[in-house]
Design a protein around this nucleic acid. Structure first.
Length: 906
RNA sequence: GGGCAGUUAGCUCAGCUGGUUAGAGCAUGCGGUUUACAUCCGCAGGGUCAGAGGUUCGAAUCCUCUACUGCCCACCA
């Protein structure tokens, strides 16, 4: 049972995980019964491939919470799964197809979906393995996938219910169109990027005059679809043109000049070209002034004049642009305008451009018929709109966001929220449960929304129904995640307006915590609150714990595009161990703040894990001793037990308040500073401590387990058989992961022991310091004389420690008497220490004492001025004043001793 | 344009409701094989807490302003 000198994580981890998984304790059904439940719905990783460092971050934090609560004896569920991630996954597979010279269209919808499913199946397998690698103790028996049968059913059900409640509607609106994905995007799926662009000034002649209005635009190509020129009503430059007709250059089409206060006089030329089909503002103007909405691009962003033609426009002057990409068209059109003299000038400007969050393509605003979720419609059942429900959930504290400042961000976003476009022109995902009875094919024009495909139209009995080809926004299904995974809608029945939950939904919903990155608060957190409040009337989670981004050395988000600084969890795990990686992501991290990660940091926690390993190794290798020969406790024993109890109590407080990093720091300080550096050294001196050390060790590995599960479980397996030798027949489970969480003993913290030990410790440190400063070789033993009236007994009782830890060969403890005349002088608390060094240089020592006196005088001065201030003595609380007085007295005493020592030196 | 954070030792960060001479880890320097660990041990150096003003007996901590950095949101073409 000899343990190796160095802990080699990779030799144990896989085996330990198997042990855990086989135990069945990941599943709450196998845990001891308890009234208290704790649950987390794991944010499902995208089914697009592999886990990155961001996933590691969430897994590590969640596993910490889960393990802690499980050890506290709660019914603990961590439900894992994967998200089909419609656009992201479809894009990924399309890229693979591209390499094979194929497109989704060349394959056809069905073959394409088969291809994606095969890909997803493979990547889900990889992801499962990777989640295990991090030690995640999630319940695999409850694993879900957003596109599996139950969840798909939940999605359709939700869609139908929302439609019944008139929260879903279909309309022509300006949407964010990604010409590369050939799909719409929700508002929050559009990123904005500052770009250097150009502002083109184009002259639009006024019919029947020699005058013209100059409009300014960044997108001159959209002029093909212009429907008006707009100016501000108060703009004296253009007042005379309002109501007249302008002639569109190149096309020679006539459009009205209108006045609207929306136009800003000071921007550009003060005149605006209005393109209702390709800009939201222009669309609104178009509605207001009944302008034509002329769409000029097809779904891949190429010029398409067919709609103009349908609208009766003579397209012959502009026919050459047909089929051009929008950016190519821009260049050609600018050139043509230049040729005809319509281009007045070009100005440089930086402006923000909307881009697709999945593929970085510039978004084309575009009129389109889509499905929307209304966020402002009052829902009868709730007597509130979705927006109001979302606000109320956080305002009322039904859901608490950690850190709190993100609540403001949340409120701000919700307040400005507009209707949510949920239909996507993507093949992969949940197809809309919508069926059209089309007039063109003999139907009545009815739209049927139904969970199961209807056989015939409910109105006209037409059987030739067409299902909507669109799929749903991926966030629609992930919005249901906390409850669709718990069996909804089957596990919730509604009676008389009240919802009755059963099964897992009753046990685990609302979930306890949602742990995720702050970058996903709008996409996901808000949508989950929306869905859960709507469907169940309750919050999806009681707490949201937000972590930050993982950044590299250059403070950039760690990603594949920065290969040099990338840390792949799967690369570092074999090298440093999962526990080291986990600790490096847990310690020194505050909620909501980004984390700077590099290999050095991981290496330092690898060192710590090894320290813990060696502490255990030392303890386990101590010779066995009989219980009956338990010695009476020494000061050091009382101190370390007191520190242990204090640590247990503090860690509990910190974990309960989600200050995980602080908890780990406390534990680290106890483990390394107190236990390893002091107590173990003392154990070597005092001996006979196996019994007490084993008790400490068992609690220690228990406390560390949620942070570093692997090494602690390995160590626990080593302690366990030994703990039985001591003859106590305590029922103890075989796995640390379900070991009872330690609680602080009532009388565990002994202040006198801590204070006395602190005195000894300070003495040792002062003497060590003196030795180092006077270059006394470590091997050289010296003498020491201690004078103390109050602590003489303490010093005598612990002289063995002083002797050994300071390398002293002879100790004298006196209450009073003649002070040595040729000795180095130190003062610790009220203890005088004299180190008679044969070769003491008297003048140098006298100078050192003088410098010391000066140093203390400075502090005294500060205190005296403070105490001389009547304001202070009158207004400050008595105990503070008292403290200052005591301090002053101590300084005075110290100086007296130093001066005395100066005199007697010879 | 609006909002939110941050600015503390060379680096990364703690510092809860204001109260000793502001802390930790890493890095640095010096000294160490003391039968757990050199992935280690001992000791040390290093900070006008971004700047200015205010509140207070007392401010890294509370308030105001300024500067710089980062992030989020936004339909100025």
């Amino acid at each position: 049972m000899e343990l190796p000198k160095i802990y080699s994580a990779k030799d144990y981890e896989d085996q330990i995980y198997e042990l855990w998984e086989a135990s069945g304790f990941f599943n709450p059904d196998n845990l001891p019964k308890s009234k208290k439940a704790f649950s987390i719905a794991m944010p499902p990783p995208n089914a697009t491939g592999t886990l990155h460092i961001g996933h590691a971050m969430m897994l590590v934090l969640q596993d910490l919470m889960i393990r802690y609560h499980r050890m506290k004896g709660e019914q603990t569920l961590w439900l894992p799964g994967t998200d089909h991630a419609s656009i992201a996954t479809q894009n990924k597979v399309e890229k693979i197809l591209e390499k094979e010279g194929q497109t989704r269209h060349s394959l056809g919808r069905e073959a394409f979906l088969e291809r994606i499913n095969a890909y997803v199946e493979e990547s889900r397998g990889i992801i499962r393995g990777q989640i295990r690698k991090l030690g995640s103790s999630c319940d695999w028996s409850r694993e879900r996938y957003t596109l599996d049968e139950g969840l798909s059913r939940a999605v359709s059900e939700m869609f139908v219910r929302m439609h019944q409640d008139k929260l879903l509607y279909r309309d022509y609106r300006i949407v964010n169109w990604c010409p590369r994905c050939t799909s719409t995007l929700a508002d929050d799926e559009v990123k904005h990027r500052e770009e250097a662009g150009k502002l083109y000034f184009i002259k639009y002649p006024i019919r029947g005059t020699n005058a013209s209005i100059t409009v300014a635009t960044t997108r001159p190509e959209t002029m093909l679809g212009d429907a008006a020129v707009a100016v501000h009503p108060d703009d004296i430059r253009y007042k005379e043109f309002v109501g007249q007709v302008a002639v569109l250059p190149l096309e020679n089409r006539e459009i009205p000049v209108i006045a609207d206060s929306h136009v800003e006089k000071d921007f550009g030329s003060g005149a605006l070209k209005v393109t209702p089909a390709h800009d939201l503002n222009d669309f609104n103007l178009g509605k207001k002034y009944h302008l034509k909405t002329l769409k000029i691009f097809d779904d891949s962003g190429k010029v398409d004049l067919s709609e103009l033609q349908k609208a009766g426009v003579d397209i012959s002057p502009i026919a050459s642009y047909q089929g051009m990409d929008r950016f190519a068209a821009r260049e050609v059109i600018v050139k043509d305008l230049e040729k005809t003299g319509a281009l007045e000038k070009i100005e440089e400007l930086t402006h923000s451009v909307g881009i697709c969050y999945r593929c970085d393509t510039v978004i084309e605003p575009y009129i389109s018929l889509q499905w929307f979720v209304s966020v402002d419609t009052k829902i009868k059942r709730h007597n509130a709109s979705l927006k109001e429900l979302m606000l109320e959930t956080v305002e009322s504290g039904k859901t608490e966001i950690i850190p709190k400042r993100f609540e403001k961000t949340y409120f701000n976003w919700i307040t400005n929220l507009r209707d949510w476009c949920v239909s996507r022109q993507i093949w992969f995902g949940h197809q809309l449960p919508v069926y059209y009875c089309e007039k063109g094919s003999g139907g009545c024009g009815e739209t049927i929304v139904s969970v199961t495909p209807p056989a015939a139209c409910s109105k006209c009995s037409n059987t030739a129904l067409r299902r909507d080809q669109d799929t749903l926004d991926t966030w629609f299904s992930s919005g249901l995640w906390t409850f669709s995974t718990l069996g909804w809608p089957k596990t919730a029945t509604e009676k008389g307006g009240k919802i009755k939950k059963t099964g897992d939904l009753l046990r685990f919903h609302p979930t306890s915590v949602l742990e995720t990155g702050y970058d996903i608060i709008f996409f996901w957190v808000a949508r989950m609150i929306l869905m859960s409040r709507y469907a169940l009337g309750e919050a999806p989670f009681k707490q949201v714990y937000l972590h930050g981004l993982v950044l590299d050395l250059n403070r950039k988000k760690m990603s594949k595009s920065h290969e040099e600084t990338l840390i792949d969890p799967l690369d570092v795990i074999p090298k440093y161990g999962t526990d080291a990686l986990r600790l490096s992501m847990l310690v020194g991290v505050t909620p909501g703040n980004d984390l700077l990660l590099n290999e050095e940091k991981i290496a330092s926690y690898r060192n710590f894990v090894n320290k813990l390993w060696n502490v255990s190794r030392f303890i386990l290798a101590l010779p066995d001793e009989e219980t009956s020969k338990k010695k009476t406790k020494t000061l050091a024993d009382a101190w370390i037990l007191s520190r242990l109890n204090r640590t247990i109590a503090e860690v509990a407080v910190l974990l309960e308040s989600s200050r995980f990093s602080h908890a780990a720091e406390e534990l680290r300080a106890f483990t390394w500073d107190d236990l390893a550096d002091w107590y173990l050294e003392i154990a070597k001196i005092e001996g006979g401590k196996k019994w007490i050390l084993l008790e400490i060790l068992e609690k220690l590995v228990t406390l560390w387990h949620p942070f570093a599960p692997f090494v602690t479980e390995v160590l626990y397996q080593q302690i366990h058989p030994l703990s039985e030798i001591k003859g106590e027949k305590k029922h103890s489970p075989k796995l640390l992961m379900v070991h009872e969480w330690p609680t602080a003993e009532n009388k565990g913290v002994v202040k006198t022991a801590e204070r006395d030990f602190h005195t000894i410790r300070s003495l040792v440190q002062a003497i060590r310091n003196a030795r180092a400063e006077n270059a006394i070789a470590a091997s050289q033993k010296i003498q020491a004389v201690f004078f103390s009236r109050d602590k003489a007994q303490l010093l005598t009782q612990n002289s063995h420690l002083l002797q050994s830890l300071c390398r002293l060969d002879f100790i004298t403890v006196m209450e009073s008497g003649e002070r040595p005349t040729n000795a180095l002088f130190l003062k610790v608390e009220d203890i005088e220490v004299y180190l008679p060094l044969g070769m003491l240089k008297i003048e140098e020592e006298r100078a050192r004492l003088g410098a010391e006196i000066e140093r203390i005088r400075i502090f005294m001065k500060i205190i005296t001025t403070r105490l001389d201030d009547i304001q202070f003595t009158q207004k400050a609380p008595a105990h503070i004043v008292q403290k200052e007085r005591a301090k002053l007295a101590e300084h005075e005493e110290h100086i007296r001793k130093l001066e005395k020592q100066q005199k007697i030196l010879r």
